[in-house]
Design a protein around this nucleic acid. Sequence first.
RNA 1: GCUCCCAUAGCUCAGCUGGAUAGAGCAUCAGAUUUCUAAUCUGAGGGUCACUGGUUCGAAUCCAGUUGGGAGUACCA
Length: 595
Amino acid sequence: MKFTCLLDLASHWASEKGVDVPQLVAEICPADKPGDITLNCFRIAKGLRSNPMQLAQGAQEFLEAHQDVESVEVEKAFVNIILTPKATHEATVADAEAFFESVKLPEAERLNYLIEYSAPNTNKPLHLGHLRNNALGMALVEILKKVGHEVHPVNLVNDRGIHICRSMEAYKRFGNGETPESTGVKGDHFVGSFYVKYAQELELQVKALKEDEPGLAEQSTDKLFLQTEIGQATQRMLIDWENRVPEVIELWELMNSWVLAGFNQTYDRMGVYFDKCYMESETYKLGKDIIDVGLEKGVFYKREDGATEIDLKKYKLDKKVVLRSDGTSVYITQDIGTTILKADDFNPDAMVWVVGDEQIYHFKVLFAILKELGYEWADKLYHLAYGMVNLPSGRMKSREGTVVDADNLFDELHELAKAEIRKRFNGQELPADLEHRAEVIAQGAIKFMLLKVNPKTTMMFDPEAAVKFEGDTGAYLQYVCARIASMLRKASDSEVTDYVDWALLNHKKEKELSLCLARYPQVIQKAAQDKDTGQLGTYLLDLGKAFNGFYHDCPVLKSDVDPSLRRARLELSDRVFTTLKDGLNALTIDTLESM
RNA sequence: GCUCCCAUAGCUCAGCUGGAUAGAGCAUCAGAUUUCUAAUCUGAGGGUCACUGGUUCGAAUCCAGUUGGGAGUACCA
């Protein structure tokens, strides 16, 4: 927000005191104070090494004489300024093109980002936790694009390993040749059901084992895994998979194709897309050659027992094994290799991983190793570590059946949204796009709920609150858009002049609205910088509330409104509409012309 | 044991580089609708910002410690 009166004040001070005056940043005046904007002289005084009270006095004297200023009041070192309406609106949103252009970062600060998110396992359907990941990843992509970065989203599908073999082994035993097509079950759910069956069978075998050998009674299922018949069979299957045994590969390909088809449906519904999907089955052997290079460089060393290790005490981290003594890879080896592959593929300036906060340590280690290996992009790696999603009853536990399934949640919200629409049509003919409206509202509800909080917060998902479309919700914001769209529709046939007289918008709510709008470019840039969707969500709610206040107090289309005032209010409303839509789209939430 | 994160209204969450009397939504109570779409708006009650000390003109915010919670700490992924 660049207000002429503050620019003038800055140059006035500069010439008066003969020093450089940093840019004077205005704050929004608190609602209970007399003013539109506030100059905090406590803050300015530090830079100028002056007395805050005297600065405030001086500011008042200067500003009272300024043509953009109606009045000034000083409280302590706060200078509360009431601007003329013209100055308020023209410094903020009058020039729509300039306003939206100011969202973009300077050319020199724009980067090429590579963002990895989602990273599902192909053995179970997606649940609420994945939805937080997906929503964050998608939104981060759009926010970064919005401020001018180039962004490439990628996925890394965990399609191999012992957990995948579990579903396969169970299918071999209990599948009876059924398929998603023959049963009509979505592919990922179909395969997931065998993962569940596997767990049941394993428990039975463990129980039998413990009955045979009471000494094992205290052992965990994981410990006894390889002593069960099914566990051994699964382990053999993993080895067969690695040896590319045709019938195992065939089954694996078949079941993965089912799961991925299911995931793609869910992705499409959310609007998830990727520039590239890496499959772990194709990348899991990567990284070993890099370890050799690192050994030569002295980054790694061989331990006496043959394992290859790196000492990261310089980074306040522990030692980390990167190759087992038998020469095989560990998880981080693969991650090193995959990261380098991604860097080669996209040549990014910066990379982001959207992964849960339980892996914070892992990424610290990964980044430190890549730094030691000397990659030029190693300083621009970021782990967006989000907190987990809890239920009122606590953590989601698959064993207790409390996992909130993604597809079911979508369906449930869709039906509830539809019921809400029906309620409002109250017997009238329903709109032709009823299903579309319900889906946009449902997606908006779940996404906004997940994105409005700070990503790092361990958040609570309350099903009761999620199914309401009131208060701090996506629907609240979509509703504002629908209201404005309705006004703009009704006004479209009226005469539209190019000239908007912003000086007419002198109502407190009108000025507040412009001042709130004016924060948008900074907010979205800060959200991009901090990779924090919560800041944007909070802001959009502020904007929505500011509009609803205006809408309540300032009639636009009523017959007694002067045409030029109506014109100006429509223009302001249009700016809210465009901004809200832009901001919601940055959160990957769609808007509606009618709800 | 060690490391990291968290603690703000009954509940869920904001609170930017320290700045005015700590905010919002939900819930509770009281109001507003011959509508520009009430999925809305207005008002009320509700706080020892976990605790103790420190830095500062000024601390929810910074520092140290205490208590309580979560996560991580494998030749697992």
